[in-house]
Amino acid sequence: MSKGDKIIVGISIGDLNGIGSEIVLKTFEDSRMLDFCTPVIFANVKLMSFFKKQYGKEINFHGIDTLDKIVSKKINVLNVWKEQVEIKFGEEDFKIGEYAIKSLSSAVKALKEEAIDVLVTAPINKANIQSETFKFPGHTDYLNQELKGDSLMLMISETLRVGLLTDHVAVKDVSAAITRDLIENKINTIHKTLIQDFGVEKPKIAVLGINPHTGDNGVIGDEDDTVLRPTLDNLRNNGKTIFGPYAADSFFGSGNYKNFDVIIASYHDQGLIPFKTLAFGSGVNFTAGLDRIRTSPDHGTAYDIAGKGLADHSSFRAAVFSAIEIFKARKEYAIIADNPLKISKRKPFVKK
């Protein structure tokens, strides 16, 4: 394999009728990206040439049929399938969903086998990927099955990190899903991630309440008092620097989030609405807690603008750079883990 010293970034192409191909092409039309990494797009070279023409991009692809043919300083495209695919931009299509999963599963296999160093996933449609062989609500759950560790959805930007206790769980099921074991596992995961992947020596963790006003002493639910607070107390007693639970409604508006290395939200929208309000377009979704690195942009397929050349690739580009930096940080941590005195000399790459 000819890869030089560049980190190999595998890219799953996502929903072909969405903006995935556009943001990938816009990211790598800047030839300077090849100074930082060697990209491998898991798709089909003829199809990528179609997208290149669609968006008017001056890009040359290096088509390969096996991963041992990867070449550094080239935009490699692994032919995951050979047949022609009909593209109808903006349409939800179960056949297109099948190709999204072919790309993803091939990329994950390569990640597990260390043929690629990191994985960056373009957006999928969670509805059209469902089948008898793929029954996951999204990337995170699938990766949690395929890779080692305990996954946690962590949204990151230059100024903010937001992790989730529960991610793709219906609101009606959230309170039952948040158990003491879950809280401990997720916070232990995020604590390790901040040290290992972000170079934060002593993480300061803020936790948001489950109920409005953290339950108002049981008036609006008792889960904060009976489940969340006792678990946080136990984690504090075990040496972790944890604050909260905080009432979620005023936490971000007050600017309090700036005082912490990470904020843990109880459920999806509690964390992602403020995150995307503050960092949309530059945010990255990082699947923390696994033995391999995966990032993605903070947006979906954007069918409404697919094929029109209007997509902003900033978040996807940030996802590529985040994957590279996390890979470097994790590698550095592995080298110096046996010497705790060196840990404090590491420089966090994301602003606290």
Score class of each variant (00 low, 15 high):
Asn76Asp: 05
Lys240Thr: 03
Ser49Pro: 02
Phe252Cys: 01
Lys26Val: 00
Gln130Trp: 10
Ala306Arg: 10
Leu272Pro: 00
Ala329Thr: 12
Ala206Cys: 09
Val45Leu: 09
Pro245Arg: 08
Val169Phe: 11
Ile187Arg: 08
Ser105Ala: 14
Gln145Arg: 10
Thr301Ser: 10
Ser314Arg: 13
Asp15Pro: 13
Arg330Ala: 11
Ser131Asn: 10
Leu143Val: 11
Gly10Ser: 08
Val162Phe: 04
Val284Pro: 10
Ile273Pro: 02
Val120Thr: 09
Gln196His: 15
Phe251Trp: 03
Glu132Trp: 08
Gly289Met: 05
Lys74Trp: 05
Ile116Ser: 00
Phe61Asn: 03
Asp197Ser: 12
Val77Lys: 04
Leu67Arg: 02
Ile187Lys: 08
Ile263Cys: 10
Ser175His: 04
Ser314Ala: 14
Gly289Ala: 00
Asp222Ala: 09
Ala248Phe: 07
Leu78Tyr: 02
Gly215Pro: 06
Ile75Ser: 05
Asn259Trp: 01
Ile190Leu: 15
Ser175Phe: 04
Asp225Ala: 14
Gly18Thr: 10
Thr241Phe: 02
Ile195Tyr: 01
Glu91His: 12
Trp81Lys: 01
Phe42Tyr: 15
Asp117Ala: 05
Ala329Ser: 15
Phe286Asp: 11
Ser282Phe: 11
His168Pro: 12
Val71Gly: 00
Glu201Gly: 03
Phe286Arg: 05
Ser105Gly: 08
Lys240Phe: 04
Arg294Tyr: 03
Glu86Ser: 13
Tyr303Ala: 08
Asp312Phe: 07
Asn217Leu: 13
Leu152Tyr: 01
His299Gln: 02
Lys95Arg: 12
Pro137Val: 01
Phe51Tyr: 13
Ile263Phe: 05
Lys331Arg: 14
Phe321Gly: 00
Phe94Asp: 14
Arg236Val: 11
Ser322His: 11
Leu16Phe: 06
Gly255Ile: 09
Lys26His: 02
Ser315Pro: 07
Lys186Pro: 11
Val284Met: 13
Ser254Gln: 06
Ser106Pro: 00
Leu160Ile: 13
Phe198Thr: 01
